[in-house]
Design a protein around this nucleic acid. Sequence first.
DNA 1: GTAAGAGTTCAAGTGCACTTGAAGTCAAGG
DNA 2: CCTTGACTTCAAGTGCACTTGAACTCTTAC
Lengths: 145, 145
Amino acid sequence: MDAELSIGAVAERSGVASSALRFYEDRGLIHSHRNSSGHRRYRRSVLRRVAFIRFAQQMGLTLAEIRGLVDELPDNRVPDADDWARVSAAWTPLLDAHIERLQRLRDRLTGCIGCGCLSMKRCGVLNPGDALAHAGPGPRLVIDG
Amino acid sequence: MDAELSIGAVAERSGVASSALRFYEDRGLIHSHRNSSGHRRYRRSVLRRVAFIRFAQQMGLTLAEIRGLVDELPDNRVPDADDWARVSAAWTPLLDAHIERLQRLRDRLTGCIGCGCLSMKRCGVLNPGDALAHAGPGPRLVIDG
DNA sequence: GTAAGAGTTCAAGTGCACTTGAAGTCAAGG
DNA sequence: CCTTGACTTCAAGTGCACTTGAACTCTTAC
């Protein structure tokens, strides 16, 4: 009952496909060991890790970026209060910045109803200066300036 | 000075590569007409549209989804107060939902410092139930339930 | 003994959002 | 005349995040 989990069990409990779990392992985001027949066995803590990965993805981070973050979480033991304090401390400002940025956008958008947005120069929503011009190719991160 | 814009000018002013602009046009997100030598000419309003597209992308929408939204904006004239009221009305709830969702996540994350997150069952951040299990393959939208 | 079901590897395929490359056109400047 | 630079089309390539398929192994149930 408290045994380690097969890939199928992790897939079911986490809602992430087995193929994706193998892919994550290949990318070094999660780890497993093998049982006598060569099947992957996961600690229960992998569920936490996978949930964390999904969360980070929803924040707009790439798997490469997430790898750096999950490396902060211990893999060989259950994360303790200190581990979480570190991770929370790292995450909270990111979340705050993200929320703040969206609130600014919302406020500007609301303001636009009044202004009619007849001028690109005046409109804060549609003319955020170089804010959109800096990033490289590809989909932009949700989290940025 | 108030003439229409070449693709290079739009690229420079919007910070979006010419190739991306052609791509957007191909996808029906923006429109242009041609001058006597077959070059694209854009109304200045295309800058607004492009900014809008980028904004929507940052909200996690795909180009296909964005197409539906930009079709709401007039292409043949400067958007007026009514146009913006409609667009704002469509966007604001999306933004609100997004912000609220992030705030919930932040609050849970903060709570985790105290709880030490020793239990998957208790932890709201890392055990959001089926929240992560519903979506199909591929990167998830930032905006969802 | 054999068939089902869950696992394995590895290569190739998919979808999105573009970018890059090749080959060509056109207008202006030296 | 010839080059330069900005544009054109179209096909192919890229990067990310996976998924799918083929061929195989292993354990369990009948």
